[in-house]
Design a protein around this nucleic acid. Sequence first.
DNA 1: CTGTTAGCGCTTTCAA
DNA 2: TTGAAAGCGCTAACAG
Lengths: 354, 354
Amino acid sequence: MRPNSPETSPESKPQTRKRPTITDVARAAGVSIAVVSYALNGRPGVSPATRDRVLRIADEYGWRPSAAARSLRTSERSIALALIHSESSTSRSGHFMDFLAGLQHTLEKHEHSLWLKVVADEEQAATMYHTGWLERRFDAVIVRDVIHDDPRLAVVSREHIPAVVVGHPQISSPHISVWVDEPHAIGQAVDLLCDLGHRTVGFLHSDPTRDTVSRTTQAARVSAARHGARLLTHVTRTPEDSAAAARALLTGTQRPTALVTDTDDTALITLDVARRLSLNVPWDLSLICLGSSAQATLATPSLTSIDVPFTALGEHVGHALMDLLSAGSSSNITVPLPPVSVRGTIAPPRNSDT
Amino acid sequence: MRPNSPETSPESKPQTRKRPTITDVARAAGVSIAVVSYALNGRPGVSPATRDRVLRIADEYGWRPSAAARSLRTSERSIALALIHSESSTSRSGHFMDFLAGLQHTLEKHEHSLWLKVVADEEQAATMYHTGWLERRFDAVIVRDVIHDDPRLAVVSREHIPAVVVGHPQISSPHISVWVDEPHAIGQAVDLLCDLGHRTVGFLHSDPTRDTVSRTTQAARVSAARHGARLLTHVTRTPEDSAAAARALLTGTQRPTALVTDTDDTALITLDVARRLSLNVPWDLSLICLGSSAQATLATPSLTSIDVPFTALGEHVGHALMDLLSAGSSSNITVPLPPVSVRGTIAPPRNSDT
DNA sequence: CTGTTAGCGCTTTCAA
DNA sequence: TTGAAAGCGCTAACAG
């Protein structure tokens, strides 16, 4: 007998922490541990009677297989996602939860779990992905909000970690991509404004690190050009910057009569700026943003926006991951963006008799 | 030789997924696996030369011990936290990230990890805590935003799961509590407003499920009473409700000249309502809220607020958990709230010559 | 200092 | 239908 062998009188309540193991359940049920395992996992080859008894006893004992022990045999499938928490990303986090909900919902249906970590920046995320991979903590990763020369993409490629990238297929490179066609949406927004008669349109992009910045700007430009309209662009980095940019635009000599923003937050800020400049939205200024309907409807006037389906995006990413993990590969997918939801912030320009 | 023994030609690149194990490293280093284990974990009893060599080879092989295998022996310590994602909680999620950052920072220092899950409600959180506990996925849990008859508290008590509750000691009951003294803060806000001369003060609480609602309301009431001021209270459930409540308050016969809100979001909404009623903040209406400075400074005028130190709160919870897990118990702690940060939304009432 | 070995709790052949 | 037993990869006694 080993020293310190715990006194296991069967009747004594496990006052401290002595959670039962499969052995305890097997003994209590008068069967071998194999049978318990079979019964629990719904494997064939156990008589219904035995199965029931085992299950009942397991339940009685409050027993569930230890995750660690189990995953030592059957690599428990899970997906890693690093939540990047910089000051700048704080605003976006509301949507992030929607994304997470959709993602986890899908993963759960396929019996995968999500391994979430909060990190400060992409660099940390990369090292986290690296060590986590070596420690076999997950089977695939998600890379969101790709930046230029993203370190996460580097490790993922180097270590051959299965990955799904939320971003344009081109930057996702060898990995599979789930893409929200923001440029297209921005183009549509500009189109709509031009169709209303606007001839000077502003475009505010609030995050220079995002990979979409050039693509969306380009789309806006093309769209404006097609209508013979002028496009004024500002790329900002912080909310304060955005406010400043909006003010600069709205007090400039070529004041745009309409503005498109890449974010509902930026739109809210712009709304505020306009108000302080005594510009009446939508009559003096039209406004369209990319964002969530929740945020959009809360403002006054409620924002005309293109509502990004964050939950659906999460689900798509989940499916892409499942395909990738099961089939070994998977095709890129484009998440459709709904048409502009017209709310209270657009109107023809005041002097639309150009 | 076992059937299906993998063809392991040492030189062949592990093209697919054949991550090395401790055995591979040991063999490559010409030592036993014990030595590798010792070397890796910095245990004494390995010659520096060997240690270096082992470490180098491990690194070369890109080897890190499998989390599952390791934690089968040494119960890897980790903490569970269920992120509740209901529509109503969406707005609060921005602060949540700050909390998480602080929490994880502390946990990491003590080599604990965070097990995060996104769930829809407290009920799901409770079952998640339950099964997770039985599966030995964590050693303690965090319960945040306690509601009335919280199912999480029920399982935690029933299963004797070590827990730290963010909430009033009284509702945290047998568990240890980390408490932000919101009632006190609200009281201070009301005091300040009364001192400025306000005699009719409104209090908007945006979440009837929170356990703080009665305590904060009571504090506001006491504070107002002390100054002989009138307190008008509204408890709302959704942003729309809050807007309606604010409007009701501001158009009522006894229009308050000052308002206190429990959330920066509510304050923003109130600001919007005031604007639409052509009330000039702060001259026609003073406003103080509980919230984060980030949100507060963004508005126009910038919100006078009591800035909740979410990151610090996370750190405190982390420390409480570490104490609980190591010492077996820990004392309740109260997180101090800073004094009111006076910004642009308070002023004496217009006719303060009462 | 280093190697051997016994498990951790579970899944999964292979025999009975 | 069941049981015995071999590991999964690692840590930690215990021997050498």
